[in-house]
Every structure is written in C-alpha cells, then in structure tokens.
C-alpha cells in the first residue's frame, strides 16, 4: 500500500461550489486534498453531489466558485493541448458508462490508449489482460450494445484504467454487479492504486468501503464531511 501522507498532492479543492440554474446548489464550499496514490472513498445518498464532484475533477464541468488543482495545476486555466494531455492521465468510469454501443468491447477499451498513440501490439495485450481480469474475455469482439448493464459497467471500468492513468475517478463502480464481480472490480482498482494511481471512488454501496483502511468522506446536501480517516500505509 502506498503512503497516503506523501508530500505530493494529486487533487486540491479549495472552497469549491457548483450551482445549476436557477439556484440549485450541487456543491457548497467543498475543500479537500487527496494525495498522490491515495485511495479515497466518496459516499453519500443519491443526489448528494458525488457525480458533480467527479465531473468537476475531470473538467467535464467547471465550478461556479473555488479552486481545483490536479497535480498542482489549475484545471480551469487549462485549454487545448494541455487539457487533452491532462485528460489522458485521468481515467474516468462514468455512472452512465459513456460507451460506444455500436463498437466492440475491445474497441471501447482501446480508445483511451489510441488517443495517446500507444502501439497497437501494446493496446491489444492490455485490452486482453483487462478483459481477463474483469471476466470479459469471451466478450472481446462482442458489440457493446448487446451486453448486460453489469458487463457494460466493467467495460467502462476497463477503459478507465487501460491507459494506466495517474488519477482514476470511478462513479458507482459496483451498482450492477454481484458480489464476486464486485470483488474483482475492487481488486483491479486496488492493483491500480498499488501501482501508484490515485483512485477516487464515489459510491453509496456500503459493502465496498466498510472494511477499507482508506479515507472516507461523505457528501450531504453538497457539503463534505469526514467519515473516517485512512489508516493505510
């Protein structure tokens, strides 16, 4: 396990608020620092603001107020190539998956590596390895739209980690999965974390963070509250 108290900070959020018109507060004055290689659990009821927070971190949306830094850089100031490069280092498994339903599973997983111009042999190997870890080997050439929700969820997760990102954001990773597959998913995320990636998991599934040694924070009405300090070393 990596040391959560390293000097390096991956995510820095200072007094971040997000409002949607006309006056819906999704996040209010959220401040949190997440270290390099930390695994961080974000919990809360549906509609608490978990997804909004993840969207802000991957610069899919911008905050109404406050500062967000990823790897020491203000993401609101990033445009063009710099923003693209930063996004290549962030793997996101979206709650709505954002898969290309008319493409094969392999193509969906490969897309994040293709934009980084990885070699085709490397891409093929990585895709095969990930599908094996997530028990999707037999779905390699299947059309993604024909998969079950649980399978699609795993494909989205495979795509998120495929490019070996330094920051992985996962939104409800186990919502459609049985206990065995949930364990596989968590094993994969832990493996990525052990390899040095910062992992932020937004979930309301109590079973996956119940016994975790990592830090857990809860969003309530758009405000962040500490549930438990991490003890992982």
């Amino acid at each position: 396990m990596k040391d959560d108290n390293r000097n390096g900070t991956m995510i820095e959020m200072i007094k971040v608020s997000k409002t949607y018109p006309p006056d819906v507060y999704a996040l209010r004055d959220v401040s949190v620092s997440i270290a390099d290689a930390e695994m961080f659990f974000l919990t809360g009821m549906s509609g608490a603001g978990k997804t909004t927070l993840l969207k802000l971190l991957c610069s899919m949306e911008y905050p109404s107020n406050g500062l967000i830094e990823i790897g020491g850089r203000d993401i609101q100031k990033m445009r063009g190539k710099k923003l693209a490069k930063m996004r290549q280092k962030i793997g996101v498994a979206y709650q709505d998956f954002k898969l290309l339903l008319d493409r094969t599973v392999a193509e969906n997983v490969a897309i994040s590596m293709e934009v980084s111009y990885k070699k085709p042999q490397l891409i093929n190997k990585r895709v095969k390895d990930l599908l094996e870890i997530l028990a999707l080997t037999d779905k390699h050439n299947a059309i993604t739209g024909e998969l079950s929700r649980g399978e699609q969820q795993r494909v989205a997760l495979a795509r998120a980690v495929a490019n070996s990102p330094t920051l992985i954001l996962v939104d409800e990773p186990t919502g459609n999965l049985d206990a065995t597959t949930t364990a596989r998913v968590m094993q994969l995320l832990t493996k990525c974390n052990n390899s040095g990636a910062t992992v932020v998991i937004a979930t309301h599934d109590h079973s996956i963070y119940r016994d975790t040694p990592h830090r857990i924070m809860e969003l309530r009405n758009g405000k962040l509250h500490l549930v438990r300090e991490g003890s992982a070393q």
Binding site: Q88, V115, S116
Partner: peptide, 14 residues
C-alpha cells in the same frame, strides 16, 4: 457526437 464527446473526455487533442 457521442464518440467525439468521448474522445474529448479521454484526452484526444483537437
């Protein structure tokens, strides 16, 4: 559109 949006999100340059 969905694919192009996704390409942006996974870090494809303009």
């Amino acid at each position: 559109q969905a694919e192009l949006e996704l390409l942006k999100l996974v870090g494809a340059t303009n």
